[in-house]
Amino acid sequence: MLTRQRKQHILSVLRRDGHVVARALSDELGLSEDTLRRDLRELAAEGLLQRVHGGALPVAAAEADFAGRQQLAPQEKVAIGRAAARLVKPGQVVFVDGGTTAVQLARHLPANLQATVVTHSPSVALELVAHAGVEVVLIGGRFFKHSRVAVGSAAMAAIARIHADTYFMGVTGVHAEAGLTTGDLEEAEIKRALMAAAAETVVLASSEKLGAASAWVVNPLTPGVRLLVSPDAPAQALAPLRKAGVAILRSDNRNNQDNHGDSDGGA
């Protein structure tokens, strides 16, 4: 089999199964694992997959810059943002991450809400200018233009001095084995710090992030994480996440937990 044919076959297996296991595929094709790993490296360099230990996963489409991400699943992000806004209760202190879905959360907070929003995203902060009852705490640091958020040691130090009720997290990939991932090392560190400083974490995940992975791990999936998805999130993508013990919330009008979830974290 020619190199081009092998690579096309690898990508077709990835589309079909949602992952590639290097040993199994090398046996199927009668190739050495070294040859297959070389193909995976080259495909990863072309941005066509994300290499992980033992194989590969779909690359996260959400690694595009802020403007590019605005074009991905815009209606899903509105629905998820609206549902996330309903989870913010009066008097709470909440962390709101950067990203296009987080902007929708801020945009849909009730006009009469009395709460405190802590964010390292100027885009989120600006959405809340007209919310008289929402106190906004803007975390500073080095401005990471790709995602329009503050990162670095100054941001980390500020986060360490805050205890929040809920962290609304944005990621580029959610995978049962690879965990919660993002496309930048410093962003991953900030997200990890925000997660540690909050009593609970709600991950805002439009469908293109489900089953995908990026290079930098924020945290493994744990039963304490709640995942807020759209009503149209594919059942096939949710099944392994549910098996990992994650509580799944659907962003429908009731914002009820997915009926197939086995945790009691409905909202």
Rank of each mutant, 00 (worst) to 15 (best):
M169C: 03
E177N: 13
F95Q: 08
H146L: 12
H108L: 13
A157N: 14
V118Y: 05
L109M: 12
G170S: 15
V94F: 01
Q114D: 07
P122L: 08
A164V: 00
G170P: 06
L105G: 08
A130T: 14
G91S: 06
A178I: 02
A115H: 00
F168K: 04
F168H: 01
S121R: 04
G179D: 10
A176I: 03
T101P: 09
G133N: 11
H131L: 09
G91M: 03
H163R: 15
H120P: 05
D165I: 07
V134T: 08
G152F: 10
A157P: 07
A164Q: 07
E127K: 02
L138F: 07
Q114W: 02
D97T: 05
A106D: 11
A155H: 04
V129A: 09
V96E: 00
F168G: 02
G170W: 01
T101R: 05
D97E: 03
T181P: 05
G179A: 06
T119V: 07
E177Q: 15
Q114Y: 01
A111G: 01
H175A: 04
G170I: 01
V171L: 02
L113D: 02
Q92E: 15
G173R: 09
D97R: 04
P110N: 13
P90M: 10
H175Q: 11
V93P: 09
A125I: 10
L138M: 14
V149Q: 02
Y167H: 14
V149I: 14
G152Y: 02
I159R: 04
A176W: 00
H146F: 13
S153D: 15
V94A: 04
F95Y: 15
Y167V: 06
H131T: 03
V103T: 13
G133V: 05
I139E: 03
H120C: 10
E177W: 10
G98N: 11
H108K: 12
A176P: 03
M156R: 15
S147K: 10
S123C: 13
